[in-house]
Design a protein around this nucleic acid. Structure first.
Lengths: 209, 209
DNA sequence: ACTGTTAACTTAACGCCGTTCACTCACCCG
DNA sequence: CGGGTGAGTGAACGGCGTTAAGTTAACAGT
């Protein structure tokens, strides 16, 4: 790579910041994990030396966290859009699950960084907890379940317990389907849509009154 | 730590091997991930220098893979024992799920190494694929589902697709419950048993004819 | 046009990592 | 009691994330 760069002008220090995030994401997708991408590689890729990155990011973790937050910043909006216009809680729940899995499968590397590798980084000491991809999604899930129960559509379950269960299921689907369909697995690949369809169908059958 | 060690006698090179595995597991559990444990730490812990480890293990990955395989070597037997004596496919399926989650929650760090971090290491180039913790568990799952369908207890679903779905659910449960109940999460903790109970109940309701 | 200031970088280095290679022990067999 | 060899050491390599100090170039003010 080793791009040639002209030094940024006085007020334009943030130009580098953007280029770094872009290069880092590309390298992350290629390498498969943040461990396979070094600060020196990223710097090299944008035509700069490694210490220059620390003018814009505290450390490597923060850099990659921001890379992935860019992709998942619109996550909550995507989920909201998926249930928009749907009134029936069952339909809303299924749409929510589908959208969640779909979004995760579309950017598996970024999903893993945010929801597996660096989840603790996402939690600790953040003032904008609500901005985390998962936090609002979870609220949405709990609300939908509660609504369904109040309207007599769902059985009387503990909404928080049920939300954790459903989260676990969709989270597991993203990770499992990704693993099965891209790695050198001893298992056969699986049709994404079939699994998702079955999963949502099972979920509803298990919850409806 | 820095244990004092007397050099092993002629035939007893394997003594070190055992001590290393034990120390590595302890350090893994303390540190929370293999990244937080260095070869030098492990060596120091058993009173030896780092290169000595390479007399017994190819590299760090293999070392930790073996650490975790020791814990999960009996995984399949544990699952078998859980369904032993149960005839009804529904009961068997629920017992299988419970046992899986229970085992994962009991050794979360080792579970993560085997089923998340080093899963690719587990797959590629192994001649003993069947010995992998997950492989036989998956077979057991598919068999149980198939049996249930043939006996008219379960709805007619694709056994492989359904197995992937159920795997995803239990896998997700292990990871999610572990995260919620040990980390500094913005979410409240959750009662393990309640989630597992609800999950298994939902699963059966969704599958039974 | 010149100069001083300062934002935007570079160079050099630190300590740690996984891993390799050459070497030295100390035990056991004959 | 000597030779062979299995068990382990010491030093080093290249790479990593990160820091501290130095350098360069764009601008504001005169």
């Amino acid at each position: 790579m080793t791009a040639v760069r002209t030094r940024a002008a006085r007020g334009e220090g943030d130009r580098l910041r953007d280029e770094v995030l872009e290069a880092a994401e590309q390298l992350l997708v290629e390498a498969g994990s943040t461990l396979g991408v070094s600060m020196r590689q990223i710097a090299d890729c944008v035509g700069v030396t490694a210490p220059a990155l620390y003018l814009h990011f505290d450390d490597k973790d923060e850099l990659f966290f921001e890379v992935c937050m860019r992709r998942f910043g619109e996550f909550h909006e995507y989920l909201l859009a998926a249930v928009d216009g749907l009134d029936d809680p069952a339909e809303r729940l299924a749409a929510l699950g589908r959208a969640y899995v779909e979004y995760g499968l579309r950017h598996p590397r970024q999903y893993e960084v945010l929801f597996v590798d660096k989840k603790e980084l996402a939690f600790e000491g953040r003032d904008d907890i609500e901005e985390l991809p998962g936090y609002r999604a979870m609220q949405l899930l709990v609300d939908t379940i509660t609504d369904g129960i109040e309207r007599g559509v769902f059985r009387r379950v503990d909404p928080w317990v049920c939300a954790v269960d459903l989260w676990a299921q969709t989270h597991g689907l993203v990770l499992t389907i990704t693993t099965l369909n891209e790695g050198d697995t001893p298992f056969p690949p699986v049709d994404e849509q079939q699994v998702i369809d079955l999963s949502m169908e099972r979920t509803l059958h298990g919850l409806l009154t």
